[in-house]
Design a binder for these strands. Structure first.
Lengths: 173, 173, 173, 173
DNA sequence: TATGAATGAGTATTCATTCAT
DNA sequence: GATGAATGAATACTCATTCAT
């Protein structure tokens, strides 16, 4: 991965995440990255290939963000760590997350199973804690953190911070 | 409003809602509407004007959907009706809702205050029912119905129907 | 000639004279004239027909302007009246003249013979006054008044007024 | 400056000079230049940019044509060289001149000060030769050569050649 | 690896014009 | 006489992509 390749990826991330994939031209990316337009195609074959490369990076970030839940075993900690996910999102990663959420609305990139491991973890956590409908509880919490994440990306962490304590208390954590 | 004007709006709604605003060409709209491309511009000035016309329609639908909450006075009914909003969305209106949610990601069309009346209604309902933090409770429920709505639009009503009863029970309705 | 027909002609004159024939759209004309676009075509068949109608009017103005020369018999008066033509152009007729000069550059409307009667009159005037080369003298004076006219249309009468007296003196009038 | 860039400029010059700026489409230019339409915009940004590039070339030609006047010091030679300007215009440069005169009628390109150096030179020449009103004389001669130039461009050099000797004699050169 | 020239298909939009009312 | 809906062809311009260097 050369310096210029990296420039291209950063430029594309910022533009795709904020303007959208279709609304961004390869010309804009090249200019922002300070490279020739041709180079984008040398490295990433086509515009879609550039998006694919970014999506792979996004998946890495998702893994990082989810790991405190995935590798936890204590049920209360699983729930607590899930609630904390959106609030621990590093500011520098906002564009990765924005891209991830934006792509949910572009058919070919919507993979609902990405959240599956979290859901499963939560389900077994709620089961272990003897909740009546562990799967429903897991789904509900997942809905909540998705919606909170979306709102953080749009309006900043402070706008949602109150929900963190409120939820921790609700789940008696 | 002539027949052809209406055709244009329907075609544009379907395409904007499913493919996205930028990904849809005026040529596609004209073809789907069975009119000449020029007519779009005679009636709506430009592509953006066409979107604006649709957004005005979307706002009408939003009003309709929210009215069972807005005009209700009994607190339990307010909460119940809020939970039911996404499940009462007529199938024929899906594209209006899809457009509404998609536009949230396009800066100039994101108006968070659209949901404000619902939030206020919920807050006073929870207050009347003596919940400890009525505003937080209102926010949480609002997050939930937003996330459920999004998922219904992507995967259909059945995928989320279980949450309706689960929530009604949770709030003892 | 109805009121609306007249509005169309005035609007077209102003636009053609100032923006140019090609740079003016029938839509602009209709708007400025306060009529529907269709009406232009009812009355004038097409955009070219509208120009033709104006050109006919222009020719009338030209006749008016030239008549003090054409119907004069005294040679010194002929020369004097020729020199005065551009300075007697009524301000209200500027657009007619502007159109006339602009059209010189659009091939199909350039009719050099329009100035012929003036040239002939001048030639015989200079002959009668025993100038050595009456035709050359006539041509030269014609060149001068053309150039002066053009400059008046572009920069106003005051910018050229000094030439009037200078020329009158030169020709001892 | 690549070969194709040059082709575009030549094609545009011929078309702009003869058909006019507005009457010429970028498609026509591309075809005549034997390039893709897109290339015009890569090199010149937009149609106006192409015109600007030509105008810069025109200014060069103007400089060339004026230099025998500007760099002359002997007053009679200054006048003689001025009279000869339109007759020395190389046939190959006609389109540059045609464009120059045509643009005088398009507001944003009319720069009357372009002729100022010639006028000044003539004024001092006539002053040195003790004419009564050197500035008026200069203005008159300038008017004449402008009008003669315009007529040469429209009807060819031969149509005006007689004026050259007539003027040289008039000014006793 | 990197550039910049070049393209062909496509984009939103405008145009002069027709026609039913 | 007058309108406004409607069109098909054209317009200036952009796009993702290729290729010679």
């Amino acid at each position: 991965m050369t310096k210029k390749q990296d420039n291209i990826l950063s430029a594309a991330l910022e533009l795709f995440a904020n303007e959208g994939f279709n609304a961004t031209s390869t010309n804009q990316i090249a200019k922002k990255a300070g490279v020739s337009e041709g180079l984008i195609f040398k490295h990433f074959k086509n515009k879609k290939g550039l998006l694919d490369a970014l999506v792979r990076q996004v998946e890495g970030k998702l893994g990082e963000a989810f790991s405190p839940v995935i590798f936890e075993t204590e049920p209360n900690e699983i729930i607590k760590n899930t609630i904390e996910i959106p609030f621990k999102m590093p500011d520098a990663d906002y564009n990765f997350w924005r891209l991830q959420f934006k792509l949910k609305w572009e058919v070919e990139y919507h993979h609902p199973e990405k959240m599956k491991p979290i859901k499963d973890k939560l389900t077994s956590a709620f089961a272990e804690l003897n909740y009546d409908s562990p799967e429903m509880e897991a789904g509900l919490l997942q809905h909540l953190i998705e919606s909170i994440s979306v709102n953080i990306l749009r309006e900043g962490k402070e706008s949602q911070i109150a929900y963190k304590d409120f939820l921790l208390e609700k789940y008696k954590l």
